[in-house]
């Protein structure tokens, strides 16, 4: 059974997707030029958007049949433009956990995920003073700490240099494998895809179904 399956999916008459299949437990890269609907595809997979035509399947069932909130907790989408509260790193963890109705994580847990995302900063540092790349990694650490079944990353390395980008993806991929998490990454970087993708989906302009 596939994790995700797209059947004749179109979005707003602008984007026509090929019949995509995503396997469970591996790392899939989604590549393609701007405007081919990469980010929209992620929104279709986490039910933040619904297709105008066609059907999306999740674990063999139509995605509409799932409770959308529960689904998004299992299939977390990490936006390209991250959001952090104007607070310390630790308080940001607390705040997002509060939004998710979860108990505060302890410092060890926070530290573990920060380290995983190469964001091993002082937990008392204020996030509003950090660079784009630092914020991106902290946000990813928070998302991973929720331990979803699937994690969708939209351009996770857009604000990172090549070396950091490689290390980050390598760490995250290893973590996902250890925890049988499926990783789906939208990325412009052909090199990252070549190096870390188990499977690669190429989106083209006007790709026919």
């Amino acid at each position: 059974m596939y994790l995700f399956e797209l059947e004749n999916v179109e979005y707003l008459d602008v984007i026509k997707y090929p019949n995509i299949k995503v396997n469970k437990g591996i790392t899939t890269f989604i590549c393609g030029d701007s405007g081919t609907g990469k980010s929209t595809l992620l929104n279709l997979l986490n039910t933040a958007k619904s297709p105008t035509k066609g059907t999306v399947f999740y674990l063999g069932r139509m995605i509409d049949e799932y409770d959308t909130i529960e689904h998004r907790k299992q299939v977390i989408l990490v936006n390209q433009s991250v959001y952090l509260f104007d607070m310390t790193v630790r308080e940001n963890f607390y705040e997002f956990y509060k939004y998710r109705d979860l108990d505060k994580p302890d410092d060890n847990t926070i530290h573990k995920y920060l380290k995983l995302c190469i964001a091993d900063f002082n937990m008392d540092a204020l996030c509003q003073n950090m660079s784009g790349g630092e914020r991106q990694r902290i946000f990813l650490a928070i998302c991973l700490s929720f331990m979803p079944k699937v994690i969708l990353l939209d351009e996770p390395t857009s604000a990172l240099d090549e070396k950091n980008a490689g290390n980050l993806i390598s760490n995250v991929k290893k973590f996902c494998q250890e925890n049988s998490m499926t990783l789906i990454i939208v990325s412009h970087s052909k090199q990252l895809a070549k190096q870390y993708a188990d499977d690669c989906i190429e989106l083209r302009n006007g790709a026919d179904a």
């Binding site: 529960e70 936006n79 959001y83 998710r100 946000f139």
Partner: peptide, 17 residues
Amino acid sequence: RNKIEVLVNLGVTPDKI
């Protein structure tokens, strides 16, 4: 808008957001 989008994608209910 960005904050709202991010929270939606983390599975937070619209009410809470």
